[in-house]
C-alpha cells in the first residue's frame, strides 16, 4: 500500500516555507510528517498531510509547483535497531532507497518510517513477507 506524499518546489528565499505552512493552516490541513531537501538555491519540501487532495489544490492555486509522489510508510518498533531492521530487509532484497525520513506515532510503541524506493510494489512485498506493517492512506489519515 502506497501513500501519497506531496513534493513542493521552493526557492531558497526567506519566508517561503512559512507561506506553505500558512496556506495549509488556513485550509485546515494537518501535516503528519515532513522533510526538506535543500541545495544552495532551491529546496524540495516533502509532506505527508491529512488531506493530500485538498492540499494539492490549495498549493497549486497559490502557484506552487507540486507533485504527488507515491511513497511507503512502514511501522517499525520505536526502539534501538527499529529502522535498522527495515533497512536490512530492503538491503537483502537488493533495493536502493532514494530517501528516508521518520516520525514517532503518538498512541503506540511504533515509529513510522517514510521511504522512497524505485520499485514500491516490490518493496511492499518484501517488507510484508518480513512481517512489517505497511500503512495505507486511511491509516495515515487517522493517526
Amino acid at each position: 500500500m502506497k501513500i501519497i506524499q506531496l513534493s513542493v518546489f521552493l526557492e531558497n528565499t526567506a519566508g517561503r516555507l512559512r507561506e506553505v505552512t500558512g496556506i495549509l493552516s488556513r485550509a485546515g490541513i494537518n501535516i503528519r510528517a515532513l522533510s526538506l531537501a535543500e541545495t544552495a538555491d532551491f529546496g524540495i519540501l516533502r509532506l505527508i498531510v491529512s488531506d493530500a487532495k485538498k492540499a494539492l489544490e490549495v498549493l497549486r492555486t497559490a502557484n506552487f509547483t507540486v507533485r504527488e509522489t507515491p511513497i511507503l510508510a512502514v511501522e517499525v518498533p520505536d526502539q534501538p535497531g527499529g529502522l535498522h531492521g527495515l533497512l536490512e530487509a530492503l538491503a537483502e532484497a537488493g533495493m536502493n532507497i532514494e530517501y528516508v525520513y521518520g516520525f514517532v506515532e503518538k498512541r503506540s510503541d511504533n515509529a513510522i518510517i517514510v521511504i522512497r524506493v524505485e520499485e514500491p510494489d516490490r518493496a511492499i512485498a518484501v517488507l510484508q513477507a518480513k512481517g512489517f506493517t505497511v500503512l495505507g492512506n486511511r491509516e495515515i489519515g487517522t493517526l
Binding site: F42, T65, R67, R116
Partner: peptide, 10 residues
C-alpha cells in the same frame, strides 16, 4: 521549473 518535469528528487 515546470510541473511536468518537477521531481521530488534533488
Amino acid at each position: 521549473v515546470d510541473e511536468r518535469h518537477f521531481s521530488d528528487e534533488v
